[in-house]
């Protein structure tokens, strides 16, 4: 698969105008297509941004040009290999989601108990927070319910085929 060309974002004019470029950078990250890198141009080395981007699944390479401008290339972590096929309907950008704030081990529970536990836990999350659940099998009846409530999800089987891994990112509060 060919990688899309990096998206270029020059924040020098924004900084020159005395504005904070963080919103513009995050907006650019949100419009990246899967696998696409972000090429950032800044008047200084944006060290705090490296941590933020790392938490969203991006590695970074930086260098200073002769004119003093810093060039940073944020590259997304490689997509899962073919043996980690995502269940159809999974969000494309799950690799960029923040770390899970909740982890649930739901193996050994009969359906629909895993669905009840996950939906109850998701209801308590703030928008954008992520939950991780381990299940015996793909919860086919949960997926439409999550979508209906405005939450995103991504899931696949572990390599062994004996456990299913699910990430859910809470959308707007659904109460």
């Amino acid at each position: 698969m060919t990688q899309p060309a990096p998206l270029e974002l020059d924040v020098r004019p924004i900084i020159r105008d005395g504005e904070d470029p963080f919103g513009a950078i995050m907006a650019a990250v949100d419009v990246l297509s899967p696998g696409q890198a972000l090429h950032l141009l800044a008047p200084f080395r944006p060290a705090p941004l490296f941590t933020v981007m790392a938490s969203r699944g991006f590695g970074s390479q930086d260098r200073q040009r002769d004119d003093g401008t810093w060039e940073v290339l944020f590259t997304p972590a490689p997509a899962p290999g073919p043996d980690a096929e995502m269940t159809p309907g999974s969000a494309d950008d799950a690799g960029l989601w923040p770390d899970a704030v909740h982890e649930l081990d739901l193996t050994g529970l009969t359906p629909p108990e895993p669905m009840v536990r996950i939906l109850e836990a998701v209801t308590g999350l703030a928008p954008g927070e992520v939950l991780f659940a381990l299940l015996d099998r793909e919860p086919m009846f949960l997926f439409p319910e999550l979508a209906q409530r405005g939450h995103e999800w991504a899931g696949n089987f572990a390599r062994s085929g004996q456990a299913y891994r699910l990430l859910v990112r809470a959308g707007a509060r659904d109460d």
């Binding site: 109850e120 209801t123 308590g124």
Partner: peptide
């Protein structure tokens, strides 16, 4: 159960 109660879980 799914039809009636799934939308109510968590609420």
């Amino acid at each position: 159960w799914i039809q009636v109660f799934a939308p109510r879980i968590g609420h």
